[in-house]
Design a binder for these strands. Sequence first.
DNA 1: CTAGGGTTAG
Length: 685
Amino acid sequence: MRCQPLILFLSAFSYKNVDYCHCPRSLFVLLDIPKQPQSHFRFAHSQCSSQSQSHHFPLHSSLFSLVEPIICQNPAEISSFAAVFNFLTGRNLLRLGRQVHAQMTLRLVEPNAFLGAKMIAMYASSGDLDTAVTIFDRINNPSLLLYNSIIRAYSLYGYPHKTIGIYTQMQSLGLQGDHFTYPFVLKCCASNVWMGKCIHGISLRIGLEIDMYVGTSLIDMYVKCGEISEAHKLFNGMIVRDISSWNALIAGYMKNGEIYVAEDLFKRMVRRNIISWTAMISGYTQNGLAERALDVFDKMMEEDSEVKPNWVTIMSVLPACAHSAALERGRKIHKFANEIGLGSNVSVQTALVAMYAKCGSLVEAHQCFDKIHQQKRNLIAWNTMITAYASHGHGLESVSTFEDMIRVGVQPDTITFTGLLSGCSHSGLVDLGLKYFHCMTKSYFVEPEVQHYACVVDLLGRAGRLVEANNLINQMPMQAGPSVWGALLAACRKHRNLELAEAAAKKLFVLEPDNSGNFVLLSNMYAEVGMWKEVDNLRAMLKNRGMRKTPGCSWIEINGKAHMFLGGDTSHPQAKEIYMFLKELPEKIKGVGYVPDTSLVLHDVSEEEKEHNLSAHSEKLAIAFGLLNTSPGVVLRVTKNLRICVDCHTATKFISKIYGREIIVRDVNRFHHFFDGKCSCGDYW
DNA sequence: CTAGGGTTAG
């Protein structure tokens, strides 16, 4: 094989699309390796340092034999090596890169600033920042290009201090930085407006603010520092505006909760790309408007055929399905993701696991997790699966998944333990949970945080060990947050400890003054023991603060369409049938042992809600609607915005028995699988 | 070179 064309080819291919027709056949081996999306940067980092490295690079020796002739024929050619490193950049081929590097060293090729920059780019993109830094340190006559590549590396790895340090060092050498430097330096000012403003000033002084990339980076910087008006000012003053400048501003307004401004900007855009659409979709999701997110996704698919959804788009729309428990929608998007070749993207797969779990289909969630290639299973993927099991009350599976994760050498983090501990508490695995809690620092190097304490308070509390739970709160090394007191309050409700409940509620009224749920819970406890004066006091407090009890709301998806019910709702077209069904229900299930729990009827907060008697609870309406509109054997999946009430829980158990149905209810904090008269929570929720 | 991003407790 002649080598010069190969070098030319490699360098050309690294920059632009190349006409494939003239390539030697063997080169297709090289061509088949896609450039990795940038996120692999971060993950490659941890993957490469784990022991399973060798599985990543099965192609190395054959690839190396392709690259070798170039090196052999031009042993001292800096440009040959530069072309090869350039090609390897972004392809996650660390070992091959190291082989080339070794050959280079053997042939006594000393890298200059140009070659050094290419090497740094290769190492940084393959997850080996340390080597990139070493190379940088050894180059004697650094150039702007060299500085840019190390700044890029540091900034993408998320080391703001290092980036700024190198940038300062560069300045002290008299190198100003160019339009390639500033986007990366600005990325590091995300939470430091002061620094951002300094860099902004410098870029103005050297006349870079007219650069599109620098301009957009400045907008993004101000957005990330929470100074949206500053960002908008910059946007207005920009001479050359790009789609990305609009996108950055739209995303900023969405993050700031100013949806209308974002919508207006989006409407005013002359041209939109996939990022504009994705910004809208994820913006809606972030602001809790899942339905709108799904609508925008559909609209994009209908109206804008130019635009092609990518993995970020899919990842942004799946949480919207999860949020609204739209299982059918989620399945469709899953199919679509497979069609456009995103089926083996870890991030998409992880989003799928979460979506299926949150839509109540633990089976499909697990199937998706299984399909994630062993080596690609990163921290987030494991966390998602552990949390999925936890929310479905499969504590033992949470634990065994956690142990698998440890076995394959993935280091757990704080979220892993919240998942694991909540799994233990949802399943009543008190001792196991306590064991993990007590050894998490020593064995796994994860320091307990507030949310872990909340899980353990919940764990002890559900089991009735209220005094221990309370003691734990007193021993906490940090301030107990709302989640901790909330867990204690819920436990006190379950085990009827009014004294502790009052203490917990008192804290919560201060910590969460807008959460009516705490008032309602305590009021229900007073009512249970007939302390009506206290009930009245709490009602008055609610009223004074202008709050109302959050109305109960449930929905069920049938044939891909969501049907929503409020407590006592009569507005549904089939309301008559539903109420007829519910009227006859108690008599039917009394036959198999149902005893209505009417205690809660008396405790509704406001008078007008008294009419919403037990049979009209929103979850019952949804279940009745489901039974009336599906064929026998179909699984019913109901989602509720609050916790399921005791009577509905009991009734649903009996319904599952006499109708032979599997009914899956997602309430605010967990899943209940009803089947054959039993619930997966074991009445432990 | 810039813009969009999957996992968190009651």
